[in-house]
Design a protein around this nucleic acid. Structure first.
Length: 293
DNA sequence: GTCCAGGCTTTCC
DNA sequence: GGAAAGCCTGGA
C-alpha cells in the first residue's frame, strides 16, 4: 500500500491509508488492550508501546509514534502489507458477503503477540468483553513493565510468561477475577516459560497442525485456537465459530440448528483460504445488527 | 470416533 | 436473573 508519513509535533500523520478504519479494527473483539477516548481516538498498548490513533477522513494522526516506531512495529501490527481491497473484491462475489463488507469495510486482522493472544482468549471463554479487557489490564498492571501515563491512565506492557507461571492459581483467580480459568492461565504460562511449548513452532506449522498443537494447551479448544491463529499468526483460513458466527451463518447461509461440524467446515466450504477474513466481516455485521438475538 | 449435558467464576445488561 | 467471542469431563 502506498501511503505517506509526515512527522509533526512529536507525532506522526499517516496519509493515504486504504481499507483502514480504527473503529472497525478495534471494536470487533480481536484485541483487548485499547481504550476509546472522548475525541473518538483509540489508545492502544502493544509490543511494549503505547500509541494513540485518531482517524479523520483519509488521515491517521498517530500520537506517541515516530517514523521508526511505525516502520518497525505498527506497519506490521496493522497488517499493512496485505491487500484487503483484493480480499474484499474476491469475497464480494458472494452478494451476502458484499453486504457484510459494506458495514465493516475498514477491518484488518492485527498481528498480535502470540502469548498475549493465547492468554487473552483463554480468558474470553464464557466471558464478556468488558470483563476480559479488565482482566488483561489487571494482569499487565500487576506483572508488566510500566510504560507511561497518557490521558489520565497508566500503561503497562503485557508480562512475560514466567511472571504468571510464578503465581499461584488462587492468587490469579482472586486478583485478576478470572474464575475457573486461573489454573489454565498458570499452566499455559508455565509450559511456555519453561520451553515445553514453543509458540514459534505454531507459526511454521500448517493450519491443521497448528490447531492441534494449540489445542494441547488447557483452556484452548477449537474456537479459541482459531482466534489465536487468526489474531496472532495471520492464518487467514482459520474460522472461529462462536455464538455470533453460529447465529449469522445459520441466518444467512445454513438455516437454523446447523450441526457443529457443518458450521466449522462452512468457512472453508464457502470462502476457502479467505475464511478468516470473511469471519471478521460477518462477525462485525452480526454484532452491529444484533442478528439472531 | 461423535454428540450432548452439566459444571465452572464472575460480571454485566 | 440470565447470558456471556467456551472448555473439560463423563456417559451414551
Amino acid at each position: 500500500m502506498e501511503y505517506k508519513l509526515i512527522e509533526k509535533d512529536g507525532g506522526l500523520i499517516v496519509k493515504g491509508l486504504k481499507d483502514f478504519n480504527t473503529t472497525h479494527i478495534f471494536e470487533n473483539g480481536q484485541s483487548f488492550r485499547w481504550y476509546k477516548e472522548e475525541d473518538g481516538s483509540y489508545t492502544v498498548v502493544a509490543g511494549g508501546k503505547v500509541a494513540n490513533f485518531l482517524q479523520r477522513d483519509d488521515l491517521l494522526y498517530a500520537d506517541r509514534v515516530n517514523k521508526l516506531d511505525w516502520e518497525k512495529f505498527w506497519h506490521n501490527y496493522f497488517d499493512l502489507d496485505r491487500d484487503y481491497g483484493e480480499i474484499k473484491r474476491i469475497l464480494s462475489k458472494d452478494p451476502v458477503m458484499e453486504e457484510a463488507i459494506r458495514h465493516g469495510e475498514g477491518i484488518r486482522l492485527l498481528r498480535q503477540d502470540p502469548y498475549e493472544t493465547v492468554i487473552s482468549f483463554i480468558i474470553s471463554a464464557n466471558n464478556q468483553i468488558p470483563r476480559i479487557k479488565k482482566a488483561v489490564e489487571t494482569i499487565s498492571t500487576d506483572l508488566g513493565e510500566y510504560i507511561c501515563s497518557y490521558k489520565g491512565r497508566e500503561y503497562h506492557s503485557f508480562p512475560e510468561p514466567v511472571k504468571l507461571a510464578n503465581k499461584t492459581p488462587e492468587y490469579i483467580k482472586e486478583v485478576y477475577r478470572v474464575g475457573f480459568r486461573a489454573e489454565r492461565l498458570k499452566e499455559v504460562s508455565r509450559r511456555v516459560a519453561y520451553g515445553e511449548f514453543d509458540l514459534n513452532l505454531v507459526n511454521d506449522a500448517d493450519l491443521g497442525e497448528a490447531r492441534q498443537m494449540l489445542m494441547t494447551l488447557p483452556g484452548v479448544g477449537p474456537k479459541v485456537s482459531d482466534c489465536i491463529l487468526l489474531f496472532a499468526y495471520s492464518k487467514g483460513r482459520a474460522f472461529p465459530v462462536d455464538v455470533w458466527v453460529k447465529r449469522i451463518m445459520e441466518h444467512l447461509y445454513l438455516g437454523k440448528d446447523a450441526k457443529k461440524k457443518t458450521l466449522e467446515g462452512s468457512g472453508d466450504e464457502l470462502f476457502g483460504d479467505l475464511a478468516g477474513y470473511a469471519q471478521q466481516y460477518l462477525f462485525y455485521y452480526a454484532r452491529e445488527n444484533g442478528i439472531g438475538k
